[in-house]
Amino acid sequence: MTSIASPILKRRSGRLGHKVRIAAGVIVSLIFLFPIYWMVLTSLKQPVDIFTTPPTFFFEPTIATYVEYFRRADISRRLINTIIVAAGSGVLSIIVGSMAGYALARVRIRGATTMGLLILLSRGVPPIALAVPMFLVARKLGLTDKHITLILAYCTFLIPYVMWLMRSFFISLPRELEESAMIDGCSRYGAFLKIIVPISLPGLLSTLIFSMILAWEELLFALVLTNRYASTIPVAIAGIAGDTINGANWGALTAVGTITVVPVVIFALLVQKWLIRGLADGATKG
């Protein structure tokens, strides 16, 4: 019924509706982007320009803060640490989480749904309640301040996240695809690797990206489980913000903040095509 009525409706409301939608999109984007814009702006100001009232939009930009902070070895090392940890935990959780999600979606196990819900529920535990026991365990095992420790710690919340997302993605795929592959000569594992994974690539990639972003920004576990060697960027920001002796250095804070955001933005732009496809077409029929 609607399919007959909609072309007429669309034509009538078309132009106006389109404009309203674009306007709404622009406004929402501005609201979300302004803080980032302001952060980048602030990071380029001289310290004297930062606190002028009213705030200035026009000033002589400088990258002095960046230069200063990059000279300090720990920022570039932290950047590398963050990359290692985000990539490591992202990849590990996508491998384990997607297989777990597949099992929950397809294998007939008694109580699979309950199991899935319990794993999801584990994410309801406040991270702070886990951080301290984790620290104690890590210290006993001699694993404090190591990349692998953070990677494993991040997996505790990334795997449930990946598992749950991929589970619903796999459920949307027709079962007959794997069944056909199994009749055609694959084991279930082979069908998963040769058919399901290639089909799910957009979904897997977008989930991987979100996981890596979550790991990239994580503060609490990084704060508790690392101190120098494996410390990440968010810890550095927290350090600058919480510097009670010198007071918060806003220039430094926004510069490091920008350094944190820029790779994410670049990365997201690079894989944009995949991201949108992964989010949009859950079911890959035919």
Binding site: P174, E176, L177, E179, S180, A181, I183, I199, G286
Partner: peptide, 14 residues
């Protein structure tokens, strides 16, 4: 060594 044709064909989309 059986072959099966499904209602939705189950062709591998990739």
């Amino acid at each position: 060594n059986v072959a099966m044709v499904f209602q939705n064909y189950a062709l591998y989309p990739h």
